[in-house]
Write a protein that binds this DNA or RNA. Structure first.
Lengths: 146, 146
DNA sequence: CTTGACCTTATAGCAACTATAAGGTGCATC
DNA sequence: GATGCACCTTATAGTTGCTATAAGGTCAAG
């Protein structure tokens, strides 16, 4: 193993991820097939580290592995127009905003649910259980108004 | 099949879910084991519908099946104190708020990323790809200031 | 008694890993 | 050269909450 070369574990450490994840990315066609030592150990170089970091940054932005695969393909075609990259990011942003809206209304509902129970009673009288047993989501009159 | 009784498909329709989901909940120990017709068809009654609706409402609130299992157990012990129910809901609300915060910062980051690309260039000059290739999340100077 | 809609089970797949088992390699030390 | 230990290899199963498929059986109507 020469300088500037990494085993899978060293690459993992350098990118703050795990060896299993790198091998998984290889099986999924995201990481390139590396060369091997005579004994079969994977050998990575700095461009593999770049590629891994690119993947991890995309993941950090919430892109699926499928999306990352596509982004990698686009990034490799340096002369292609970047409208597709732009569109992919925009679409992903839309999806994130959608999930955000869902989670916000979920938070509001849960907060309402949470305030139903003062905390000192028994299950039989618990307004939370009552709320979960009736269809509070669809009723016009709320299950409880704390 | 008498009135007030349901096949799995009828129960599914009544609860606006699917038969496979009900059978799945049975395997996971959420729905009770139903009686069967001589031919082996599951027969449900209205309390099974209540239980299914309870499960689906919990799911709507984002509880995991594991949580729902626990909530069902608590709901069955009508004389137990409901502090545990209260705590479970509060903990879940905390988790939802955490995910919400993560998603909000993700949205901000993605929006910044999105504005990096004007849309007319080629991949080689694309600020988005550049941003994904550099570690913009950890750099003090932003990858681009559109 | 046939048709057709429904039911039954078992099994595999999805995403993105994580965990486990059983064994092999590389390198330093004795 | 032998030993020890950290690390590597593969294959396989598990996670969550379903969904899809296959191959077959049942029910009720006509």
């Amino acid at each position: 193993m020469q300088s500037g070369e990494y085993t899978v574990g060293q690459l993992a450490t350098a990118a703050r991820t795990k060896a299993v994840t790198i091998r998984y990315y290889e099986r999924q066609g995201l990481m390139r097939i590396p060369t091997r030592t005579p004994g079969g150990y994977r050998i990575y170089r700095s461009d593999d580290l770049d590629r891994l970091l690119f993947i991890l940054r995309c993941r950090h932005f919430g892109f699926s592995l499928e999306n990352v695969r596509e982004l990698l393909q686009l990034a490799d075609q340096t002369d292609a127009p970047c409208a597709e990259v732009d569109a992919k990011v925009a679409r992903h942003l839309d999806e994130v905003r959608e999930r955000l809206a869902e989670l916000q209304s979920l938070e509001a509902e849960l907060q309402r649910l949470s305030r139903c129970c003062a905390g000192g009673g028994i299950v039989k009288d618990c307004r939370i259980i009552e709320s979960l047993s009736r269809d509070i989501g669809n009723s016009k009159t709320p299950a409880c108004t704390p």
